[in-house]
């Protein structure tokens, strides 16, 4: 069974005229995939990721994640599902600025109800995995862009999700940090078996992924 499957997935916006951001996408993502979604600006990459991650609802069609049809779940059930099964990495780091690196990662585990001891162990382990164990107690303002994005990756994987969705994760990073981040994700995919879907138009990212989905005008033209 595929980890994610979509059926005739559509997302339309009405802005005087109807804009078809996603237009009838049928897609299967298997476990342990390391996939990139590429396409020009406005092609629907972010919208597709939002639909796959349950942070947006389709106009038509459905998304099945790990056997659950998520498109019709209530907000509360969707929140629970995102918390347990999906990790997110966003373009502009999007961490909670008043918390330290450790606390940002720990936040997910608090929501999951882990004990303090378990949280400490798990957070320190993932911070070690992303090479930030020595910066755990630093406030975010004292971390570089690359380091912050690694904190975001740590936050995304600490709850051991089924899948990590990363929306242009390297867009705000310099070349060196961008490559390091993709290599980190690749390592986590290979060693821990975490499924990654990355939206990007950065070739350095694309060439390191195992599968490439090309999107134009809300439609898949290559998968």
């Amino acid at each position: 069974m595929a980890l994610i499957e979509t059926f005739e997935l559509c997302k339309y916006y009405e802005n005087g005229t109807i804009v078809k951001a996603i237009d009838g996408i049928n897609l299967k993502i298997e476990k342990r995939e390391f996939t990139s979604i590429v396409g020009p600006s406005g092609s629907g990459k972010t919208t597709l990721l939002n639909l796959l991650g349950g942070i947006d609802r389709p106009t038509k069609g459905k998304v099945i994640l790990d056997g659950i049809e998520i498109s019709s779940l209530s907000e509360r059930r969707l929140s629970e599902l995102r918390l347990r099964k999906i990790g997110f990495v966003f373009q502009s780091f999007n961490l909670i600025p008043v918390l330290t690196a450790f606390e940002n990662v720990e936040f997910v585990l608090i929501l999951r109800g882990f004990s303090k001891k378990e949280r400490r162990e798990k957070v320190m382990k993932v911070l070690k995995d992303v090479g930030l164990e020595k910066l755990a107690d630093r406030p975010l303002t004292k971390l570089s862009g690359g380091e912050q994005q690694r904190v975001a990756v740590a936050r995304a994987i600490v709850g051991e999700p089924k899948i990590v969705l990363a929306d242009e994760p390297t867009a705000n990073l310099d070349s060196e940090n961008a490559i390091a981040l993709v290599e980190l994700m690749k390592k986590l995919n290979e060693e821990k078996g975490i499924t990654f879907i990355l939206s990007t138009h950065d070739n350095r990212v694309v060439e390191r992924t195992k599968r490439i989905i090309k999107l134009v005008d809300g439609k898949i033209i290559q998968s």
């Binding site: 942070i55 907000e75 509360r76 929140s79 995102r82 918390l83 347990r84 997110f88 966003f90 929501l111």
Partner: peptide
């Protein structure tokens, strides 16, 4: 934007 992130990672609306 931050609230969007918090909600995306699994915080329920009521929380």
């Amino acid at each position: 934007r931050e609230f969007g992130v918090i909600r995306a990672i699994g915080v329920k609306p009521i929380e």
